[in-house]
Amino acid sequence: MTPTWWGLCMPRRHQKANISLPKSVHRIVSRGKEYFYFQKGRGTENPGSRIALPKDPHSPEFWAAIQQLRGASISMPADTFSAVLDEWILQLRASGELTDGTISFYEQSSQIARKAWGALSPRGLKPLHVQAVMNGLSGKPGAANNFLSTMRSFSKWARLNEHIDANLTEGITPRKSENGHKPWTVAQIEAAKEKLSGVVRRGVILYLYTGMRGSDAVRVGPEHIDEGGFALTTQKKKRAVYCPILPELEEEMKSWDMSPPGPFLQQEGRKAGNKYTRKLFSRHFAEQRDQIPELAGVTLHGLRCTAVIRLRRAGLSIGQIGDIVGMSMATIERYCRFVDKKASGKAALAALIKSEKKPPTVKRRKTVKQKPSDII
């Protein structure tokens, strides 16, 4: 199609960089061009100096500059474990494929490895070294499993990029944890509905009846509604899911304002209308939760487990639940293992009781045919 004269005269619409920026990094647009700069304490009484960053937020140089300004050591010799770890983190940020929360998780969990092996060559590391760190975290199964998960991702990348010769986590199994995120009880759910207020209560309802991850719950809004459900791509796994709006949630949503664009969960008070991050919403939830005795110890992620169990009890298969909540089949099976065993046990008991109540079979007496000579 030949462009019209007015189409040629219209200014080009600038496309924003689709990337999550870390703390102290800010983006501005001036005359259609995009600029990034680093400044600590922006908006406070004592802001730091504003330092320009490289223009391309998807380049390793962009993130290397941020690391340096944040005080991270990137002067380690190139053949050390610490330098390879830095390269991995920089490439994760530059790719734009993972959320900032996931990358921060990797950064935090890898600090143990950096302290232990930072100045060593990565080629000298073996699974026994990773296992030794795991053994040192025997009293902290959660931290041990986080470390193992990070090392698995790092090892896969490092081997592909020829920094190591073998998988550093081969043969290492996660720690068993008796704690973790527990599902909420009926009493806890009722207490939350009754005593939580404002956007925090709305968020809990959204978590409960959808099973969404926190990173998705803070993004979902009216624009995601499609024929009685929420259709969206998950932030963490980039997986397309379709979550039906259950009758209980539909009833709650009748009082929600559907007119403004943006997510259902928006900040209140001084920052009214601003979007939430997963961490900020969790913090605001914790502030209200800690004032309610019935909710002691509960977590938002526990509601994800609660939602999965509710769907399983409703008769949905593990595959169907995965399509709704965007969770792996292994995780769903882990969440539902007790529920499935309990349901199976009840079914077996019902069958046993039914068999015991079955009336005994009455055997018919064999009829002896009389001979004519026996009849008097």
Score class of each variant (00 low, 15 high):
residue 216 D to W: 02
residue 263 P to C: 11
residue 217 A to C: 10
residue 125 L to N: 03
residue 304 R to N: 04
residue 325 V to R: 00
residue 250 E to F: 07
residue 78 A to M: 12
residue 51 I to M: 08
residue 227 E to W: 06
residue 260 P to V: 03
residue 122 P to G: 04
residue 280 L to H: 13
residue 85 L to K: 04
residue 353 I to C: 13
residue 300 L to T: 10
residue 165 D to C: 06
residue 46 N to V: 12
residue 373 S to D: 14
residue 337 R to H: 13
residue 287 E to N: 06
residue 262 G to F: 02
residue 96 G to I: 05
residue 353 I to L: 15
residue 102 T to A: 09
residue 9 C to N: 08
residue 165 D to N: 09
residue 196 L to R: 04
residue 364 R to H: 11
residue 123 R to K: 14
residue 101 G to L: 05
residue 109 S to W: 02
residue 365 R to M: 08
residue 10 M to Y: 07
residue 166 A to R: 13
residue 313 R to A: 12
residue 82 S to V: 07
residue 58 H to L: 10
residue 188 Q to H: 01
residue 30 S to P: 00
residue 150 T to N: 06
residue 49 S to N: 14
residue 127 P to V: 05
residue 127 P to F: 10
residue 42 R to N: 01
residue 215 S to N: 10
residue 168 L to R: 12
residue 94 A to V: 09
residue 359 P to R: 07
residue 249 L to V: 01
residue 127 P to L: 11
residue 317 S to Q: 08
residue 192 A to T: 13
residue 306 T to G: 06
residue 80 T to F: 09
residue 174 P to F: 07
residue 301 H to A: 06
residue 214 G to W: 00
residue 178 E to D: 15
residue 326 G to P: 00
residue 145 N to P: 04
residue 117 W to L: 01
residue 93 R to D: 09
residue 224 H to K: 10
residue 287 E to P: 05
residue 328 S to H: 03
residue 49 S to H: 13
residue 362 V to A: 13
residue 186 V to S: 12
residue 97 E to K: 13
residue 284 H to T: 07
residue 54 P to H: 06
